[in-house]
Simulated assay, not measured.
Amino acid sequence: MRTLVIETATAACSVALIDSGRVVARAHEIVGRGHAERLIPMIAALPDGGRADHVLVDVGPGSFTGVRVGIAAARGLALGWGVSVSGYSSLPLVAAAAFRNRPDADPDTYNPDIAVVMEGGHGEVFMQAFSADLSPHADLASLKPDAARVAVGSLPAVGNGLRWLADSSEPDSGVTETLPDAADAILLPAALTALPARPIYGRAPDAKPSLPKPAAIR
C-alpha cells in the first residue's frame, strides 16, 4: 500500500511517499509560516502527483495553523481520491528519528530514553519522554521552561523547543535541535499511525466560552 505522509506541525513543511516499507519520494523545506502556499505544490511534485492508497498526517501538537493546514489537505485529498486518512503525533516521530540517529555510547553511561521538547505557544513547550520502543513515560504536557527543564532532567533531549531551556542548550550538552520530517514516519509502528485525523493541541485553549448572564431579578 502506498501512503502519502504530510508533515506541517512546525516551521518545516515536508511530504513523503512510502510504499512497501520504503520511502520512494520525499521533499522537506523550512517554510516558517508558509505551509498553505507550499504544501500542495510539494505534493503535486511527487510521483503521480502524490496519489496514494492512504494519507497519513501529523495531527500535532505543534503550530496551531500548521497542524490545521496539514489536516485540511489530508482530509481533502483522501476524500477526492476515495482513500483512508489517519494521523500520527509529532512527538513520537521526532523521538523515533532521534533513536535512529543516536551514536554508539558507553553502555555504562548510556541512557536508553529520550525527551522530546517541541516549541509550544505563549512561552511554553510541549514535552514528552519516550523509551526506545516509543512507549511514552507519561502523557504529553505543555510546560513553562523551568518546569520542562526539571521534567527533562538528565535525559538526552531533542526537538525544536530546546532554545527555551537555556540551561540545557550549552555546547556539548547532548542537546540537538530537531524538526520533524515526513519521511521518518516509516519508523513509526502501526499503532502510532492510526490516530484520528483531528488536531492534538496539547494545551487548553486560551479563549474560554463566556458564561450565560444570570437572569434579571424582577
Rank of each mutant, 00 (worst) to 15 (best):
V125W: 02
A36P: 02
V23S: 08
V67N: 04
D104Y: 04
D146Y: 00
A52C: 07
H54L: 10
D133H: 01
V83E: 12
H122S: 12
R22Q: 15
S89V: 02
H122N: 13
G123K: 01
A73D: 02
D48L: 06
S90V: 13
R33F: 04
V83P: 12
A45Q: 13
S154P: 00
G49H: 12
G76Q: 08
L79C: 06
G32M: 11
S135C: 04
P107C: 10
A132I: 10
A25E: 14
A98R: 04
V83R: 13
V55I: 14
A141P: 00
D104I: 13
G34K: 15
V116A: 08
G153K: 02
N111W: 06
S86Q: 13
E29C: 02
V59I: 15
G76N: 12
G66D: 05
G87N: 11
G123T: 01
S131Q: 13
E37Q: 15
Y88N: 11
S154N: 08
A96D: 07
V55F: 09
S63W: 01
R149D: 14
L79A: 15
G121K: 10
A96V: 05
D48M: 04
A95G: 05
G121L: 01
P61D: 06
T109H: 13
S89P: 01
V67M: 04
D139P: 06
D58M: 11
N111M: 14
G70Q: 10
A105I: 01
G120K: 03
P145S: 07
R51G: 01
V24S: 15
G80T: 12
D53V: 07
L155C: 03
R33H: 13
G123P: 01
R75P: 00
L79E: 09
G62A: 05
D108T: 15
D113C: 14
A97G: 15
Q128S: 03
G121W: 02
G76T: 15
G50W: 11
S89F: 07
R100C: 03
S154V: 05
R51A: 14
V125G: 02
E29N: 03
A36C: 05
F130L: 03
D48C: 06
H54M: 10
F126W: 08
A151Y: 00
L56S: 07
V85C: 13
P61L: 05
M118D: 06
P136V: 03
G34Y: 09
R22F: 07
E29I: 09
S135M: 10
L93H: 08
Q128N: 02
V117D: 07
L155I: 03
L155G: 04
A148K: 05
D104N: 11
A129F: 01
R51Q: 15
G153T: 02
D113E: 15
E29Y: 01
Y88T: 11
V23Y: 09
V31P: 00
R22Y: 02
R38Q: 14
E37V: 13
P103F: 12
S90K: 03
G49M: 12
S142H: 03
